[in-house]
Structure formats: structure tokens, C-alpha cells
Simulated scan of single mutants.
Amino acid sequence: MDVDTFPQRFVELLKRALPDRDTFTALHQPSFGGREWEYVKDCLDTGWVSSVGQYVDRFERNLAEFTGSPYAVAVVNGTAALHICFVLAGVKAGDEVIVPSLSFVATANAVAYCGAIPHFADVAKGTLGLDPDKLKLHLQHIAELRSDGHTYNRESGRRIAAIVPMHTFGHPVDLDPLIELCAQYRIPLVEDAAESLGSYYKGKHTGTFGKLAALSFNGNKIITTGGGGAILTGDPELAKAAKHLTTTAKLPHRWAFWHDRVGYNYRMPNLNAALGCAQLEQLPQLLNRKRKLAERYKETFAAFEGVDWFEEPQNAKSNYWLQAVLLDPALIHARDDILDLTNREGLMTRPVWTPLHRLPMYGDCPRMNLDTSEELERRIINIPSGPDLIRE
């Protein structure tokens, strides 16, 4: 491979894989091909646009049915969902929560909202999510299960209150060994499933393995409610508490305002839920188109020396939310040239997030060895991934 011409060749192949266009190609543009206008107009016509309405309840029922989760609670965004997951999992101020360093900042921010401290763990090359083998060795070194039934970090003295796998770009983490670790150390598993609606691990939908899980329906997700998220849980008491907390902890009454604890104004508005109901109806078709786009990219880049196509892990079925390529380690110096050239050509590409341990507000947080996160950050490029880039 001629290093000097590598970025230009990358752009040529990317154009070959995409439909002919004379406009800008977004990284991930929502697809509105169903009853969105009808449902949203119904909210406007009836006046039910805020956090009470038939579409909120309907969206929760449909979401629970699709994911196989017994309960779903709709909220204003994925970060709010994750925040409430941590509150209900018992995360307290001064605790530590184990999160992947290679993740969107919301994963760590939701920990910080609780007054807790992110403890950064490394990821695996095969999943891009938490590496259970490295985490096991790390916990053997720093973790101590005490007589009170909680695990503490020997080095900091702080309780480890949760372990949070994040399903990167919709690719499921290897969950079984993480579940075993959580059981061994009596640490709750809370899934950051924000990116993985429609993804499955060993035949079971992501977000249904832990005590609680968070989903996101931001404008760039596989389906969108504009802004929105949801909490998944199999525990009826946690589901009840989630709905109560996210509705300002107000007790039901015809007119009285009585709140029994500090709550949050996190409930999803009916207007957003209406959009979500229409989007959920199309999700199987969107997933099929995303998979076909992944196959097209894989075929296009197959013979391109210097680029590895990232495929779903073993025992998993990914929603392929964001398509990703990995540059050969010898070509990482070309990453920014590729990003610059593609974006100048009207093809939106992005690097993966800056590892969280390098952000200024998290620079002093505890961490394990993060070599893989550092390496992948230099190698990953996300390329246009919207479902409308391919048709059935």
C-alpha cells in the first residue's frame, strides 16, 4: 500500500460503497418512512404533548415487548436513564463504578451525577467493550469482598458499587464472564445499552442481563424520539421506583402536590413517544438495512490493504448502529488525513471518542492498564451508517 495515496484510495472505496449523491452524507441520519407525521399530529390535535399521554404508555409497552424486558420506563434521554439506573442500583456519593474508558462521555457523567467516581477499565479488541479477562485480573489485584457483603477497592478504600458494560456501536459485550464476576464480587451489573437497541447476545436482547439498563433514542440512534431514552429492568419494584423518581417523585393525587423524596423531571413527553412508536414499528426493516449496509462495506473494503472491517463478535448479533473500520497500526498516522479528506468531500466520518481517562475532569480517577483503549482510539474510524444509505 502506497502510504501517500492511502487517504485518497480510502475515499474512492467509500464512495463506491455508497449510493450516488450530490449532497452531504451524514454519519447517521434518521429514517422517517412510517406513521411519524400521523402520530405526532395526533398529539398536536388533541393537545397531549407533554409527559402524560397514550403514546408514552404505548411506547413503553412496545419497547418492553421488542426487547423482552418485563418493564421499560421512558425518559428524556439516555444519560438520564443511566443516571436513574445508578441511583436505583444503590450507587452513592464516594463509591466507585467500573466503566470502560473507551465510551461516550455520558457513561462517566452519569456516575459523576451520583457523586461517585468512575473507575476506568480496558476494552477487548474483539468486542470494543469491557474486557472480562483483564477486568478479572484487575479485580483480583485491587478488590476485596468484605463481611458487609460489598466489594471495596483496597487501594482507595472506596466501595465498588457497579460494573457497567457499554455495547459499543451496537456490538454486544461478552456478558457471561462479566455476569460471573459480578456474582463473585456481589457487584450489580448495569448495562449501558444506549447504542444497542436491536442487538442480541446469545439470542437474548442486550439490556436484559443486568439489574438495570439504559437505552438512548437520540437523533443519531437506530430509532429516534428526537431526544429520549429508557430504563429496562426485570424487577417490578425497580420499575415502579424508576417511574416514580423520573416523575419528580410526586405521589398520585387529584390536586395535591406531595413529593416524598428528591425526584427528577425526566419523564419522556408524549410528543416524543409518538415519534418513537412510529419508529419502533419500522425497527425490523431498519435493522435489516443496517446489516445489508455492513455487508456492502465489508465486501467493498475486503481487498483494501491496511483496513480491517469490524464485524459483530461471536455469539452476538449486532444492530450495526455505527459502521467502523480499523486502520492497520502502521497506518494510524493517516487517520487525521482520512478524516479531513472525507469530510471535505462531503462524507461525514468521525474518530472514536477520546478515552475518558484523558478528559480533564476524569484525569485523576482510578484505572487499570488501558493499552487496548489507547490503541483502538488511534485506529477506529466511523463511516456513514444511516439506514437510508441502502434500500431493501
Rank of each mutant, 00 (worst) to 15 (best):
P329I: 13
S385Q: 06
A303K: 11
L197Q: 04
Q282Y: 02
Q29P: 00
K290T: 08
R35S: 12
Y71C: 08
A110R: 08
G263V: 11
K204P: 02
R367N: 02
N265D: 15
A241P: 00
Y297L: 05
C365L: 07
R289W: 10
L63P: 02
L327Q: 13
D174T: 11
L326F: 14
N265W: 03
D148V: 14
S103K: 02
A72T: 13
V105I: 15
H83T: 05
Q140M: 12
P355W: 08
D371Q: 10
I332A: 07
K134T: 05
V11H: 04
L18P: 09
T233L: 07
L370E: 03
W258H: 12
P360E: 02
L63T: 05
P165V: 11
L137T: 07
S147D: 13
E299A: 15
D95S: 07
P30Q: 07
N109P: 00
Q285R: 15
T225Q: 03
K211F: 01
L145E: 01
A81T: 08
R154G: 06
T300R: 06
F66S: 08
P252M: 06
L359Y: 04
V123N: 04
T5K: 15
L14P: 01
A162P: 01
L181S: 03
H83A: 13
L389Y: 06
E36L: 09
V75K: 06
E374P: 00
Y152V: 07
P351N: 05
D174L: 14
R146G: 03
D192W: 09
F10Q: 12
L88P: 07
P70S: 11
Q279T: 03
W258M: 09
P100Y: 00
V111F: 11
N62E: 14
A93S: 13
I332P: 03
K221M: 15
S156M: 11
R289Q: 10
A274P: 02
I222V: 15
L18N: 04
F104W: 06
R335I: 07
D235W: 03
I117P: 01
L44T: 04
H83I: 12
S69M: 11
M361E: 13
L14V: 12
C43R: 05
G276Y: 01
T168G: 00
Y266M: 11
A249K: 09
G78Q: 10
R267L: 08
V75C: 11
A324K: 05
G227K: 11
Q285T: 13
I338L: 02
T300V: 14
F301K: 10
P313I: 12
M1G: 12
I383F: 06
H167Q: 06
G78T: 13
W37V: 13
F257A: 06
G94S: 09
A242T: 06
P252W: 10
T354Y: 00
V56K: 14
G94A: 12
D364W: 01
F86R: 01
R296I: 14
Y297K: 08
K41V: 06
L145S: 06
I223E: 02
R159Q: 10
A249F: 04
G198N: 09
G68S: 03
G94K: 14
L178T: 00
N265R: 09
